[in-house]
Amino acid sequence: MTTQQLTRPAAPARLANPPARTLALGLARARYEVRAYFRLGDTVFFTFLFPALLLTIFSTAFSEGTFGSPGNEVDAAQYYLPGMLAAGILLSGLQNLGVDIALERSDGTLKRLAGTPLPVTSYFLGKLGQVLVTGLLQAALLLALAAVVFRVPLPTDAAAWATFAWVFVLGVLTSAVLGIAISAVPRSGKSASAVIIPITLVLQFVSGVYLPFDQLPEWLQQVASVFPLKWFAQGMRSVFLPEEFAALEPSGEWDLGLVALVGAAWLVVGLVLTRLTFRWIRKDS
């Protein structure tokens, strides 16, 4: 008995300094998640490279065409670049996390984490970090492809890039948080893609990513305006299209204030839904 007493496991652990610990573990999770992400060939292809692939297809298919009103035309690559950047935000956040977390719930990953002293907030920070890193790389790839291969003129003034930065960060955060929230919807990991991909696909079609927004019927424009993707795409158009293109928007303006407002509102909705619905495991299922 005495020898056991001597070599017993160390005294009950104190988990010191919770906020700092939560943050440090969040960073550790982000590194871990990014590494695992790039080792899965199918996610890299379908969420990471997909927008670059579509930009290439649109730019090549419509290489003879021009977009915009007479006198202010741009080529297909420039016209589609903002939409692809917005689509990338949606795919890296909502689609990627929605499917990924549903799979982690069904394959036992979340159950294993639930049995460890990992704070749930650190898990979320890791997912956000992963989306931020992969989203940034994805955007950088799109911009490089557009500039180098398709000779799209990128903005040169700091104000345009500042707009890009806040629209991108707000978009990624909102999209990621909505992805965490929506991961509770699929009833199994197997059905996750089937449930979530149609949602993101429809959103992309009605939000001016694949189809020019000004050519959609007005009622469909209004429906799309409820959802954040339309606004992120509009924010990106304000950065990469000439000023004159603002006339093609429903209000004739870029409406960046509304972009911020609708994006922030959906971010709050996503946070509240996540807080209310996220569980490591479904108890008693």
């Binding site: 394959d107 990953t109 159950k111």
Partner: peptide, 10 residues
């Protein structure tokens, strides 16, 4: 736990 089916990309 009883064995799960995690992807295990690490």
């Amino acid at each position: 736990l009883q064995s799960g089916g995690e992807q295990g990309s690490v």
